[in-house]
Design a binder for these strands. Structure first.
Length: 426
RNA sequence: GGAGAGGUGGCCGAGUGGUCGAAGGCGCUCCCCUGCUAAGGGAGUAUACGGUAACCCCGUAUCGAGGGUUCGAAUCCCUUCCUCUCCGCCA
């Protein structure tokens, strides 16, 4: 949610930010509504002031037994009532329009974010790790998994349809191992608090992180109105909703391993094979709630946490700074981590770390009180994957495949796999 | 799922139609007093929005949320969310 006061003071910057995202300017429309809204508020408050004053006099008159005076005053206030009801209705509509408009507009990118219209304009900021070399043609992960007999899309399709998978045996364990490995690093080495959050949440929570109202079609919803989380960003960020924190409580860092559910509306025909794009997948997510002045450092730190996982798994990757046209709705700046997939002969997104400024805390009504001071401020939020577990498994399969179709288990993971060194067909 | 009880300020807790933004207590802040410690005295202590250049001041709203009745609602009515107790069911 945007800061109306900031838009009032900086309409050109606001429109400039929207334009960089490929959107039309909106400040004139917003400011017109705002002005109208404030005029209505002033008018209504004036009426209320009068009504309150007269009502108090009625109370006094009745208290002193002066019924005639009371009656007279009651007649006087009666006419006020109609005007007030009409004004309230009109004013309410203006306020609703204004809020709906504000809620529908994406966050303003930071100056340092590269301009661009889409994926092609993202900037490769650095490349890390070494791609493995093969003496044979590396296979894609779905062939590897299916040949091992541990990855089964057909069986999943029978019970759930497309975009679901069944993992079994050592591959199922690998999923659990990866998640535990990631979570252990984030919690014991980087200070994230491990959380097991609800994965069914209500409207308010999803509005808070701004998947609602604009992106409802991307989400699954239960018949009684819960939303299945598309990412643990939703519950983890909402950990601080409607709270006033002490400055000393910041930063707050949460990490969780949860299933995520996405309808993938509009991505028909995309990544139809394999584990890359599922209706259900698991992910380890990081969320930080920080003092505004710490936000940019925290973005680097969080990205580093995600990178550390890739490094320890010995996977090559590149870091992209997303351009204005490819960033998510809430982001002011985003780094994507793309892991090297030899089977696909390409880099694929495995993590996305974003700084959202106060965009989400305004929606959630999260504030913090400055130490020693009285004034309240909105903290800033960040979220990042650390990492997408399914896609990490894809990377392990493709990068550690052997000519015979077996998979070497990365050193760092072996203790989580009961000492197993290699996954092979049984 | 059935039957009850309840949601008031940072916390506890009064308050069943008028002068209540809300008694009292605790906590916290500042000041005074007190030769340590303890005690005592005084003042202050919500948020949002609008009027404003203004965190001074004025106004409006907020007693879980939304709606209604009324000249006037923390107090009455309806809806809804949440919490708790008992029963049932259940991992």
């Amino acid at each position: 949610m945007h800061d109306l006061k900031w838009i009032r003071a900086n309409p050109a910057d606001f429109d400039g930010g929207l334009k960089r995202r490929g959107m039309q300017p909106h400040s004139a429309e917003i400011l017109a509504l705002d002005e109208e809204n404030r005029a209505h508020i002033a008018k209504l408050q004036e009426m209320q002031t009068r009504r309150n004053a007269v009502s108090k006099q009625i109370g006094k008159a009745k208290g002193s037994g002066d019924e005639a005076k009371a009656k007279e005053l009651m007649d006087e206030v009666a006419s006020l009532k109609e005007d007030y009801a009409a004004g309230e209705k009109q004013g309410g509509k203006i306020a609703d329009d204004l809020n709906a408009l504000l809620a529908s507009l994406p966050n303003i990118p930071l100056d340092e974010v590269p301009d661009g219209g889409g994926e092609a304009d993202n900037v490769v900021t650095r490349t890390e790790g070494e791609k493995p070399s093969f003496s044979f043609t590396p296979k894609e992960h779905f062939d590897l998994g299916e040949d091992l007999g541990m990855l089964d899309f057909e069986t999943a399709a029978k019970m759930s349809g497309a975009r679901f998978a069944v993992l079994s045996g050592p591959l199922a364990r690998l999923e659990r191992a990866l998640a535990a490995f990631m979570l252990d690093i984030h919690t014991t080495e980087y200070g994230y608090t491990e959380v097991v959050p609800p994965i069914l949440v209500r409207d308010e929570a999803v509005f808070g992180t701004a998947q609602l109202p604009k992106f409802a079609e991307d989400l699954f919803r239960t018949e009684n109105g819960y939303w299945l989380i598309p990412t643990a960003e939703v519950p983890l960020t909402n950990m601080v909703r409607e709270q006033i924190l002490a400055e000393s409580e910041l930063p707050k860092r949460f990490a969780a391993h949860t299933p995520c559910f996405r309808s993938e509306a509009g991505s028909a025909g995309k990544d139809t094979r394999g584990l890359i794009r599922m209706h259900q997948f698991s992910k380890v997510e990081m969320v930080s709630v920080v003092h505004p002045r710490e936000a940019m450092d925290e973005l680097e730190r969080m990205t580093g946490c995600a990178e550390e996982i890739l490094k320890r798994l010995g996977l090559a990757y590149q870091v992209l700074t997303l351009c204005t046209g490819d960033m998510g709705f809430t982001a002011r700046k985003t780094y994507d981590l793309e892991v090297w997939l030899p089977g696909q002969d390409s880099y694929r997104e495995i993590s996305s770390c974003s700084v959202c400024g106060d965009f989400q805390t305004r929606r959630m009504k999260t504030r913090f009180r400055e130490a020693g001071g009285k004034t309240l401020h909105f903290p800033h939020t960040l979220n990042g994957s650390g990492l997408a577990v399914g896609r990490t498994m894809v990377a392990v399969l493709e990068n550690y495949q052997q000519e015979d179709g077996s998979i070497m288990i990365p050193e760092a993971l072996r203790s989580y796999m009961g000492g197993l060194e290699k996954i092979e067909k049984s």
